[in-house]
């Protein structure tokens, strides 16, 4: 394999019913940095049925090129059909790096593509970098329950591929002045050849609206003491229009249902403001929230690790601090004569 034949950074653009997934935009941001370091173009790979109109958006978020395959058989994601398209593109244009969101479909697709291309695939990465001297892609992922990071390399095979966790990388500001090259490829696919059929897609919106999309999250930990004290968090949430989440210990204590758990084995969130109240800040928790814009920690132990990730730290008893905060926010609300909401 002649490694130097392979050039450029590619991002698989995951779309559902004509809407690009957030993780794909995040990957265009991360991919831009990698492409700039390597001085190569960044391309988005867009497959679907009637998706041409999405190409501009891919450019506005950082791509120089967009490869498109538009075909009725690609209407819904299926490993068989998507894999075929992506493999044909990769074999023809030979990218050196290829990123996918670590979503059910992204992981599924990347695993199949890696097998056919006989190349390496690093799973669920959270840090991406380039070793310029050796022109190698360094993809790092949490290992053994997040206690440690492992950097995985793929030295002798191309493309170097990775799936990347959603909500870890940052999307660029949308730039409507950007111009890119659109390359459309055709593919021969027949519905009769497909061995799987998508019969129905059922969206569950309830869960998403709760945490993943919240602008402000109040997260409580075991330090809240009991279920009754935990209710204080809802009062604060009410006063600023926030959602409430919890640590694993809180979920295990039965104070919250599992879908409101934040962290490695729960949701990953990136709100504008994250209140961490009475929680210690174990690594398994912080991997799920550390990319929030502003983190406010309230903990009575000055040595709690949560202060290492907090933007603002308050050392004190939550039972004393919370009522004061609630009072202040309510006052602000009355003073301005309306509802507080964060944009």
């Amino acid at each position: 394999m002649n490694l130097s034949e392979y050039q450029g950074v590619w991002v698989f653009i995951e779309q559902n019913e004509g809407e690009i997934e957030g993780v794909s935009l995040e990957l265009l941001g991360a991919g831009r940095t990698l492409a700039d370091k390597l001085e190569v173009p960044l391309a988005g790979v867009l497959l679907g049925d009637g998706v041409r109109s999405l190409a501009n958006q891919v450019v506005y978020y950082g791509a120089d090129e967009v490869y498109i395959i538009d075909h009725p058989v690609l209407k819904d994601y299926r490993t068989e059909s998507y894999m075929k398209g992506v493999i044909e593109l990769a074999e023809k244009y030979k990218p050196e790096i290829f990123l996918y969101g670590a979503t059910p479909n992204g992981k599924d697709l990347a695993s199949a593509v890696a097998t056919d291309l006989s190349t390496g695939l690093t799973a669920d990465t959270t840090m991406l970098d380039i070793d310029l001297e050796n022109r190698l892609f360094e993809a790092s992922r949490p290992a053994f329950g997040g206690n440690i990071m492992a950097t995985i390399l793929c030295k002798k095979h191309r493309p170097q591929m990775a799936t990347v966790r959603p909500k870890v990388m940052k999307a660029l500001e949308v730039d409507h002045t950007r111009i890119g090259k659109i390359i459309e490829e055709t593919i021969s696919l027949k519905e009769e050849d497909m061995r799987t059929k998508v019969i129905q897609i059922v969206k569950d919106v309830s869960k998403k609206a709760n945490l993943a999309d919240a602008h402000v999250i109040i997260c409580g930990g075991k330090g809240m003491g009991d279920l009754q004290n935990f209710q204080l968090l809802y009062s604060l949430a009410d006063s600023i229009g926030a959602s409430v989440g919890g640590t694993r210990d809180v979920v295990e204590a039965g104070w919250l249902p599992h879908h409101l758990q934040i962290g490695q084995t729960g949701e990953t969130v990136t709100p504008k403001i994250y209140f961490a109240v009475g929680l210690s800040g174990a690594i398994q928790h912080t991997v799920g929230m550390k990319n929030s814009e502003i983190i406010i920690a309230i903990n009575k132990d000055p040595n709690a690790p949560i202060f290492d990730v907090a933007t603002y730290g308050i050392v004190g008893d939550a039972m004393e601090i919370l009522p004061k905060l609630i009072e202040q926010f309510n006052e602000l609300k009355n003073h301005t004569g309306g509802e507080l909401s964060y944009v």
């Binding site: 440690i148 950097t151 995985i152 390399l153 983190i295 050392v315 004393e320």
Partner: peptide, 24 residues
Amino acid sequence: SPTIVGKMFSPPKPEGGIRLEGTA
């Protein structure tokens, strides 16, 4: 196996911010 483990390291400690002072 095309992939190898390059190195293992402790997750980077993010920079903490401002510790607020004084009474509650």
